[in-house]
Amino acid sequence: MIAALFPDRTAEALLIHLSGQESEAAAHEKDCLAAIFGAKLGWHGCKDALGALLQGNKGTGLLAQIFTASADTRLRAVLFLAALVGVFLIVFGGGFAESTFLTAVGWFRDQPVPFSHQHHVGSLGIDCRYCHSGVETSDRATFPPTHTCMTCHSQIWTGAPILAPVRQSMLTGKPIEWNRVSAVPDYVYFNHSIHIDRGVPCVTCHGRIDQMPLTARAKPFQMQWCLDCHRDPAPHLRPPEQVTRMDWSDWERDPEAHKDYGALMVQAYGIEPAKLIQCNTCHR
């Protein structure tokens, strides 16, 4: 790599020049150059040797011309670029950007109350909209106010220690602070109501919530994932009155039976995929 920094001719000229000289300092320089090009001394070792030589000003001054401040900088630049390429390879080539560490897919978060969708949705059969009442009418699905939990927990599990934060919140009026698992960055505009109105079921974006004892993100909420559907929403559309249904295996098992539904709905609603993938749909 070091050799690459110096045009061949410079090195050659230098060697020829040095071999004509007999001084002790020149001999040192010669050794050192040989060492560099022979890669015997490490970069630092030789630089130190050179530094000592140059400071004593015993040399020919030629080395100082080669090892100028800019040569030093160029080396650093090359090393730096190499490091960047390495990082880039790990992030994109090695799949770090797609890894669940970044997309947070499947990662649970500690919650003030270990709320279980599996229990409330899966076994009690409560509809999503009982708690997330804004989902049909606003951009936000909204989190249930404490009053909603207390609809039932004023009567059942009234003494349970795990529900203490709920009772505390009801008493003080201070909302429970849930830790978000499925947020998109602030520069992205998302709106639930349009998706629900058009019949994109919750499960498409949030996965089998009804099987989650603790809530985790089910899909990588990356731009590509949004765009994949916006380019061709037809296969994802379902009857809007069933958006909260979790299990669509009957549709998926028998794609023939419903193959026209999506296309017809795209027509009926006047959905234009070309518009849906314009940047200002989501970045406004």
């Binding site: 201070k174 602070e177 602030d186």
Partner: peptide, 20 residues
């Protein structure tokens, strides 16, 4: 840009005593 100085719905706030 991912955390802009604005409040989303139900985000905590340091402006008010009750934190809402």
């Amino acid at each position: 840009m991912g955390r802009q100085p604005r409040y989303d719905s139900s985000e905590p706030s340091r402006l008010f005593a009750d934190g809402k």
